[in-house]
C-alpha cells in the first residue's frame, strides 16, 4: 500500500522519480481561513485566497503586515524555525489540504518550493552540486548523463546556463548575488515543484539583477504557479498577474484586497489599498 503511495509521488527518492525537469504544470492553491498565532498573539487573521495555476501572485503590504509569515505557511516552512507560529485553517494544493493530519510536511515542500530573500546556495557545494542538491540530499541515484541533463535543463530554465556552463565545478558562493539567486531558483526547479514561493527574492539584489529575475519569473510561470512576496510595488505591478494587499493596522495582519494586478493598481476598491499604492503610508 505504501509502495503505491511512493510511486504516486514523482519527487520521491527513487531513481525513477528524478528526471529532467519536465514541469507537470503549475497547480492551483487555495487558502481557507488561515490564521497564525505566536503564542496567544494573533499575527495573521482569516486569510482567504484562491491562487490561479500558472500565474504570478504577488503579496504586498508594509513591513510587519504578515506577508512573509503567510508565504512560509504555504509550504509549512514556518514549522522548521524555532519559535514557529501555530497555524489554523487550510491550505489546499490542487484540492489537497497540506495541513491535513496525514500530510507530510517534507513532501509538501517538494511540491511547493521556496526561494529566499538572501540567496543561500550551499557553500560547500559546487554550482552543479547545488542544482542537484534536492535530489542528492534525498539520496536519489543518478547516472552521469541524467545528472548532467538535469543540471543543464534547470540552469537553462533559470536563465543561468550561459553564464556558468564553463564553471559548473566552482563553488556557488563564487557567483554574483543575482547569479546566486538564479542558482537557487535552478535548484528549486530541479526537484520539479508545482508551486514556487519567493520571499522578497530581489531585496538583496541590484536593479539589473532584479530585472533579470523578473524576466525569469515571467518565463517560469508557463510551467509553475508562482507566489512572490515583495515590498516593491513596481515589481508587483510589472511581474504579477494577481496582487494581494495585506495590512496589520490596528490588529493582526489580514488580507485587505485581492484581485488582478491591473485592477488593484488602477482602480482599487479599498481606500487603504489606494493609500498604500500611491505611497501615502507604509
Amino acid at each position: 500500500m505504501d509502495n503505491t503511495q511512493i510511486k504516486e509521488a514523482p519527487q520521491d527518492a527513487s531513481a525513477e522519480g528524478y528526471n529532467t525537469p519536465v514541469a507537470t504544470g503549475g497547480k492551483s492553491m487555495e487558502i481557507r481561513n488561515l490564521k497564525a498565532y505566536y503564542g496567544s498573539y494573533l499575527a495573521i487573521s482569516d486569510v482567504n485566497m484562491e491562487i490561479q495555476p500558472n500565474k504570478v501572485t504577488a503579496l504586498i503590504g508594509p513591513s510587519g503586515c504578515g506577508k512573509s509569515t503567510l508565504i512560509r505557511c504555504l509550504n509549512r516552512m514556518h514549522e522548521v524555525t524555532p519559535g514557529a507560529p501555530r497555524v489554523e485553517g487550510e491550505v489546499l494544493l490542487d484540492g489537497q489540504n497540506i495541513y491535513a493530519p496525514s500530510a507530510d510536511p517534507v513532501k509538501v515542500r517538494r511540491l511547493i518550493g521556496m526561494v529566499f530573500q538572501k540567496p543561500n546556495p550551499f557553500p560547500t557545494m559546487s554550482i552543479s552540486e547545488n542544482v542537484l542538491a534536492g535530489i542528492k540530499l534525498n539520496s536519489g541515484r543518478l547516472n552521469h548523463a541524467q545528472a548532467a541533463e538535469i543540471v543543464e535543463q534547470s540552469l537553462h530554465r533559470a536563465a543561468l546556463w550561459d553564464e556558468v556552463k564553463d564553471k559548473l565545478g566552482k563553488s556557488g558562493a563564487s557567483l554574483s548575488g543575482g547569479q546566486q539567486q538564479r542558482l537557487c531558483i535552478a535548484r528549486t526547479i530541479a526537484v520539479n515543484p508545482e508551486v514556487i514561493l519567493m520571499d522578497e527574492p530581489c531585496s538583496a539584489l541590484d536593479p539589473i539583477a532584479t530585472l533579470k529575475i523578473e524576466e525569469l519569473i515571467e518565463e517560469l510561470k508557463a510551467q509553475y504557479t508562482i507566489i512572490i512576496v515583495t515590498h516593491n510595488m513596481q515589481q508587483a505591478s510589472r511581474a504579477s498577474d494577481f496582487t494581494a494587499f495585506m495590512l496589520a493596522q490596528d490588529g493582526p495582519g489580514h488580507l485587505v484586497e485581492f484581485g488582478p494586478t491591473q485592477q488593484i493598481f488602477t482602480r482599487p476598491t479599498q481606500k487603504r489599498t489606494e493609500d498604500y499604492i500611491t505611497g501615502r503610508f507604509g
Binding site: 517534507v106 517538494r110 529566499f116 538572501k118 543561500n120 550551499f122 557553500p123 539520496s139 535548484r187 528549486t188
Partner: peptide
C-alpha cells in the same frame, strides 16, 4: 546560518538529512 537549513527544507529534504548532509558538512 539558518538560511542553509531553510534552503534544504525548501527542497523537501527531511530534517535529519538536512542535519547530516547540509549542517554538519558546513
Amino acid at each position: 546560518p539558518n538560511a542553509l537549513r531553510e534552503a534544504s527544507y525548501a527542497l523537501g529534504v527531511p530534517q535529519w538529512r538536512t542535519i547530516v548532509k547540509v549542517v554538519l558538512p558546513s
